[in-house]
Design a protein around this nucleic acid. Structure first.
Lengths: 205, 205
DNA sequence: ATGTATACGTACCGATCGGTAACATTGTCA
DNA sequence: TGACAATGTTACCGATCGGTACGTATACAT
């Protein structure tokens, strides 16, 4: 998938004769608006307006709004696994600590005002149709998350690794959703604690 | 959940001075469409068409589409607590069994094709603005769910009742979401099992 | 200087959005 | 019969939706 493109050079591209590329500006703005306010809620007119470009520019880089939404989620996917891998790398060969680190981070993120949960989850709610381009990306992301959690649960030595992996996924999804539902002080702040309790209860004795 | 269709001729309602009420037909159809396909995805034209009424009829009974959506959720709220109370009544004075029954039911519901999760949760995702009429109803429902779960967790004798109650809420929300994300065979089928593990690990010894 | 290719803008499309005005029709009850 | 309330009918509103036809500007190589 060509994630249009030129994401690099992020630090400084103001120098010299390199205009910031309409496609990148569009994707950046779409990312922000789609995530914060929802995909269906944002029209292409608002995107191009905020990006300082025009509509034909959008449609030269992206074949449709739906595909722009899919591109937004592909970018989201990249950053998602970066965060995930950070937690993993911070605790080599210790899947339980990896999970704890990842969930602690999620729990913290949910405790900021106007937290909007997981872009992948939100997109799937907005588009029930499994064939929608955005939903395809979302489902793939979640399948991968499930796979990783099950692998980690097995590495922890769970009695039933698949059940524990799925339980952790339920807690994570619950944190994403209740984070945006309850705002500050909501149930999501206890996700890491509850996950650790669940892990403890699921290990082979 | 009302399968659309005019309730006309339903057993006994044709007699006497009770015309089938356009408002009821509209709300039934809106309920079905909003739940299955999302609120933003459904236009008022489609609602009145499927309900066999006209647009002015809709706006005589509901001041706006947003308020119709709120009415849909108020109806959803009623039926939600009916289901909840069924599980409660089935196991008097046994909150752990009550939770297990409620979650087993949720786990089963998530395992049907085209499951669409919780209407309350979905509406909150569709409308991030806390002042939106639909979201107000949704947030109230979730606050009440949280309150009940915490009370039940306390009644179970949890070491930290609030944490357990919130953990159960996370699992429930996770089940709603992953139920519609993964379809058959998804993580939501293990929600009751995981909840019971979490409860076991949270009780005072 | 000129050709060529790419990037961009102006202006517009038909369709649909939520919502309404004005009037005709119906059934119920008095 | 007459009054009333509920619903239907038709036609319309301005705004916004996603998307496009087509002309213009700039950059660079020849």
């Amino acid at each position: 998938m060509p994630t249009d493109k030129n994401i690099e050079l992020s630090i400084s591209d103001d120098h010299a004769s390199a205009p910031p590329k309409a496609a990148k500006k569009i994707l950046d703005v779409a990312y922000d608006l789609f995530y914060r306010r929802g995909i269906r809620a944002i029209g292409v007119d608002e995107i191009v307006k905020r990006a300082g470009v025009t509509k034909p520019s959008l449609y030269r880089s992206f074949p449709s709004k739906d595909e722009l939404a899919a591109s937004y989620l592909r970018q989201y996917d990249l950053e998602y696994w970066e965060r995930f891998d950070e937690a993993v790398k911070a605790h080599p060969d210790d899947p339980r600590a990896q999970i704890k680190a990842f969930l602690t981070r999620i729990g913290k993120r949910t405790q900021v005002a106007d937290y909007r949960g997981c872009g992948m989850t939100n997109a799937a709610v907005e588009y029930p149709d499994h064939s929608h381009p955005a939903r395809v990306v979302s489902e793939a992301n979640k399948q991968e998350l499930r796979r990783r959690l099950r692998v980690m649960a097995a590495a922890m030595g769970a009695q039933d690794a698949d059940t524990l992996g799925d339980g952790l996924l339920l807690l994570i999804e619950g944190a994403y959703i209740s984070g945006q539902l309850f705002g500050l002080g909501g149930p999501a702040q206890s996700v890491a604690t509850n996950a650790d309790l669940l892990i403890e209860a699921s290990l082979k004795k």
